[in-house]
C-alpha cells in the first residue's frame, strides 16, 4: 500500500486515473444503457448472430444466402422493415404451406433475435429500415388519416379495418390492435398481396396519420352499441333474421297461444 501511496504523484498516475474512469464509464454504460432495437445501430456481431439464426431457421426455404427458392422469395432488398414485420407478427417462420402467411399470436423469436435477423437481412442489400418511433406513435391527425385510409386502404381492409377477402383464398387481414410499427412496416414493405406505399405515395407523416386513425378505431367507442364486427350490412341482415325475427315470432306465438 505504501508503494502505491508513494507513487501517487507520479506523472503517469493522472493518465492511469483517466483511463480507469473511461473504462468504468464505458463499462457501466454498456451494462445500463437501454439497448436500441434499431437495425440501424446493428453491429457486426448482430449481423453474425442474425446470420446464424437465419441459417438455422430460414435458409431451408429462402436459401443459404437468402437468394430465395421456388418455395420462397429472395430477401435481397426487402430490408429490415420486412423482417421485423414478418417475424414480429408471427407470420414467419411460416407455420405451414398456404395461400398466404397468417399472423400468429405465437412469435418464435425474442425481440433481440428479430433485431439480429433484421440486421442480417438488411446487410445483404439496402431496403426499407425499421421506422423511427416518431412516425409510429399514432399521435397524428386522425381525420386526415381517416381520409387517406378510405382512399388507399379501405377497398381491401374494409372501412373499419375489419379485413376483407381477396382472390383465391387470399385476404387482407384485420387491422385492429396492430402496433404502429408493424402497420408502418407493412406499408413500406408490401407484404403478400399488399402494394408498397413508399414515401412518395404517403409521406411518413401521412403514414403516422393513418396509424393514428387505426388506433382511434382500436379504442372501440361504438356510440351506436354493439358493432357486429363492423362488417357492414351482411352481419346486420343476419342479426335481423335470427334475433329480430326470432323475437317477433316468439312474441306472436305467445300472443296467439294466450287465451282471449
Amino acid at each position: 500500500m505504501n508503494a502505491l501511496a508513494a507513487r501517487r504523484r507520479h506523472p503517469a498516475a493522472i493518465l492511469l486515473l483517466l483511463l480507469l474512469g473511461l473504462v468504468a464509464t464505458g463499462g457501466l454504460y454498456s451494462l445500463l444503457a437501454p439497448k436500441p432495437a434499431q437495425a440501424a445501430t446493428a453491429t457486426a456481431d448482430d449481423v453474425n448472430a442474425g446470420k446464424m439464426l437465419f441459417l438455422a431457421n430460414c435458409a431451408t426455404c429462402h436459401g443459404l444466402h437468402a437468394e430465395g427458392s421456388k418455395d420462397a422469395p429472395s430477401l435481397a432488398g426487402v430490408g429490415a422493415a420486412a423482417v421485423d414485420f414478418q417475424v414480429g407478427t408471427g407470420r414467419m417462420p411460416l407455420a405451414g404451406p398456404g395461400v398466404q402467411a397468417a399472423a400468429s399470436k405465437k412469435i418464435m423469436f425474442t425481440d433481440a433475435q428479430i433485431a439480429s435477423l433484421a440486421a442480417y437481412v438488411a446487410s445483404l442489400s439496402p431496403g426499407p429500415a425499421i421506422p423511427d418511433d416518431q412516425y409510429t406513435k399514432g399521435d397524428g391527425n386522425i381525420a386526415h388519416g381517416n381520409e387517406l385510409f378510405k382512399v388507399n386502404c379501405a377497398m381491401c381492409h374494409n372501412f373499419a379495418g375489419s379485413g376483407g377477402a381477396l382472390t383465391r383464398g387470399k385476404y387482407a387481414p384485420s387491422l385492429r390492435n396492430v402496433t404502429g410499427t408493424h402497420i408502418y412496416e407493412a406499408m413500406v414493405s408490401g407484404p403478400q398481396s399488399m402494394p408498397v406505399f413508399n414515401d412518395a405515395n404517403l409521406s411518413p407523416t401521412d403514414k403516422n396519420d393513418i396509424i393514428s386513425y387505426l388506433h382511434e378505431l382500436d379504442k372501440n367507442k361504438n356510440p351506436g352499441g354493439m358493432n357486429l364486427g363492423n362488417l357492414g350490412p351482411v352481419s346486420e341482415g343476419m342479426f335481423i333474421w335470427v334475433f329480430g325475427l326470432g323475437l317477433m315470432i316468439g312474441a306472436a306465438v305467445w300472443l296467439g297461444a294466450k287465451a282471449a
Binding site: N146, E147, K150, V151, A154, M155, C156, H157, N158, F159, A160, S162, G163, G164, A165, A172, L217, N222, P223, G224, G225, M226, N227, L228, N230, L231, G232, P233, V234, E236, F239
Partner: peptide, 23 residues
C-alpha cells in the same frame, strides 16, 4: 343495443374510394 349502418365509420362518399365488404 346494436349499431346499424355506422355512417360515421364509412365516412363521406368519395368516388375514388370503396370499402371491402360493400353489400
Amino acid at each position: 343495443l346494436v349499431t346499424i349502418n355506422p355512417i360515421w365509420l364509412y365516412g363521406p362518399y368519395n368516388p375514388s374510394a370503396v370499402t371491402a365488404g360493400a353489400q
